[in-house]
Design a protein around this nucleic acid. Structure first.
Lengths: 409, 409
DNA sequence: TCTGATTTGTTGGTTCAATGAACTTATCGC
DNA sequence: GCGATAAGTTCATTGAACCAACAAATCAGA
């Protein structure tokens, strides 16, 4: 048996706190306020919301400005007495955070900056079932190079890349263990990518597609006060991710969220995994299409546009019941009050929701006094690309000085 | 619908880091080294293992000595050249950390100090099914008072109490929402306890019984390098807890780990929760006793000593298969590589393990290249009492200065 | 139009925890 | 008894945040 190369995080990291750690923490906190708060805050606003003094915030803000991470806007007269505040905003086009993805029927690149704006993106549709990793990653590298080129010419530095894959990926650095729907076995995809792109001094990380899509969704839901939820991503297989207090829980190896092989019926159909009656055989895309009497190669939209409406509704109801059962198990286990339907389930949500809700209200123990919300994903179009790029941004916000040092030398 | 009084933890807490935070962190780190490392370390050892300088460790150690949390042992000549090292150990009998528990057939108190030694304990067996909270908590308070009295007379200060209950408890401060096997509904048990004991200036917290038992188990497994596992606690019902990187994951409200109502068979027997085919109906204590043809009122040991050995083995095998199925769902979902069998499953482990292992190897996706270990719990006798007390200790180790300030004034 | 109130942002001295280098203490080996 | 070695301590230095005072820019009212 292969050993796990990604060492466990262990418990509390025993790292001494020095003066520099102080500044690191506070600098990150200030940048977080500027990046993640709706209205551009002034230095005084940040001082009030963080508890730092205005003097300290000023010093930290100056450092962030020097590092090119934030900028001042023109002062706005606030209709009140007093000197007008200078709003601070993340600097546009100051860096590239890159999300990459290879999935069953597309691959692509999305580049965002600290403001969250998409600087460039490119998605290529195709059929990547039963392929070999090398040529596909070469294609991805070519698309990447093409998308990045004009921005590099503009002089925008590259902060990092996050690659999303539909399979089991070890925490952060890989390798990929298994991607059944691509037909890929154990392979060090990061090595392939760094080689094909020549990215030697840029961090390249990878994660499961559902994990990164969930991260994008978490960013959408945070302003709404939703910090803990389970994200189900329907595709050919069914993946998922656990979001707890705003953070994705990767699990021991990074493989958490695999809800697709939850037992629905011990006498159910045989699954590709070798067991009987897995959720995937009831609510996976192929199962839904088959139950609706549609060609498996069609896109999911066919379910919504087919003429045989009655059969489709029945098929989706059955799928929704199975999904609701598996989600009930999940909710009892991890205790979340929100479920987000992503992937193919997002457009199908209106047909799935009633059955899912019914199963959940019957099976979730705490439902009577703390009801569970089920909703379609807000972040839809290639959410994993956005989630990957946002994760790169998150690393910078957590420790801005390491980035500014990398840039300023 | 009642609203959730325990506010969500939100994301990263936005608290400014001052110089005092530095000392707090480093002080906690030093104390952690002294409390949780096998051989009593010297100041120099701690400097080496933490990365702090010897000067800093000396200053912090002096502070901990002044606060009464640690003591120096006599220097040991190490058979090497150089001045002999002074081993630092947690101070014995310097404080009381208290675990309390009310369960279906017993209630009790256990008091430990920073060394982990049990200073006193008292467990009263009884039948607390279908009781009312008030008289039971009064009994617990009486046992508590009786156990604490001699230690209080000795002048040992009380650090805090953690109460374990077999039901859904909101994070840390309660209330208890539901304890089906006690027959208790929503009730503010902490208020009852503080009132009955007169503990006004001592923190009193509560949590699910399995959560706290898992914490005790985590302490046992940490030196062995196991930091992530799922703890299943078999009782009348079946509870559990998710331990991730050494920390119990409480979930949104504190109700995580409820594996007992995982679906095993959609056509299975009716469960008390109202659904069909829950795990509890296959592997709960009553189900096992019934399948073995034993009186439900007997203790589990009856399963091991009964004359009808064949029937018992079959009953346990069937229970083990159901448990294995539910655990497989769980492992795929949360990605742990270890499962710990606690509660009644600990003594039954030899009979359950083969069936559980077989189900897991068939259903866990990553099992082929990263096998899952299933083992009986190490911490057994009233583990939740120890876990509760240890959690109180953990609070002190995380921030020793707040404790020393409370003591020294 | 000027003055006072108000709020923002900056400046310079102060505080405090960790650092680093030198120093003291205590042992071992020869 | 002496040098080598390691543990623990002392003290001046560094650096980040704090505090209080100040400068800058606006509004409101006389």
């Amino acid at each position: 048996m292969t050993e796990h190369p990604s060492a466990p995080a262990g418990r509390s990291p025993i790292t001494p706190a020095r003066q520099a750690s102080l500044r690191e923490h506070n600098l990150g906190m200030v940048l977080d306020q500027i990046v993640n708060v709706v209205n551009p805050p002034s230095r005084a606003d940040i001082a009030a919301s963080t508890g730092l003094t205005r003097a300290t915030v000023s010093a930290l803000a100056d450092r962030l400005i020097a590092g090119g991470l934030i900028t001042e806007l023109a002062p706005v007269s606030s209709q009140r007495a007093g000197r007008p505040a200078v709003p601070l905003v993340p600097a546009p086009r100051s860096l590239m955070a890159i999300g990459l993805e290879v999935n069953v029927d597309y691959l692509g690149v999305r580049i965002i900056d600290l403001t969250g704006a998409v600087l460039a993106e490119q998605v290529v549709t195709g059929n990547f079932r039963a392929t070999r990793p090398e040529p596909v990653m070469a294609t991805l590298a070519a698309v990447f190079a093409d998308t990045v080129a004009p921005l590099t010419a503009e002089g925008i530095p590259l902060a990092g890349c996050y690659l999303a894959l539909p399979g089991l990926v070890d925490r952060k650095t890989g390798p990929l263990r298994l991607a059944p729907n691509l037909g890929w076995g154990p392979v060090d995809v990061v090595a392939l990518l760094t080689e094909a792109t020549g990215l030697t001094d840029t961090p390249v990380w990878m994660a499961n597609e559902a994990t990164l899509a969930a991260r994008a969704e978490a960013e959408m839901l945070r302003p709404l006060g939703v910090h803990s939820f389970f994200y189900v991503s329907g595709e050919i297989g069914i993946g998922g991710a656990i979001v707890n207090d705003g953070a994705v829980m990767p699990g021991r190896h990074g493989w958490s969220g695999e809800i697709g092989h939850t037992l629905i019926d011990p006498l159910g159909p045989l699954c590709g995994c070798g067991a009987l009656g897995c959720l995937e055989q009831y609510a996976g895309k192929d199962a839904l299409m088959r139950a609706a009497g549609l060609d498996l190669a069609l896109p999911v939209d066919a379910l919504l546009t087919t003429s045989d409406r009655g059969r489709t509704v029945l098929a989706l109801a059955a799928g929704g019941r199975a999904l609701g059962t598996a989600l009930s198990n999940t909710i009892n286990l991890i205790d979340v009050d929100t479920v987000v339907l992503g992937g193919i389930y997002a457009p199908l949500a209106p047909y799935l929701l009633p059955e899912i809700q019914q199963e959940i209200s019957a099976r979730v123990l705490f439902h009577p006094w703390s009801p569970v919300t089920v909703q379609a994903a807000q972040a839809t179009d290639y959410a994993a690309l956005t989630g990957g790029a946002m994760t790169v941004l998150g690393e910078i916000v957590r420790d801005p000085s390491s980035w500014t040092q990398r840039i300023l030398g």
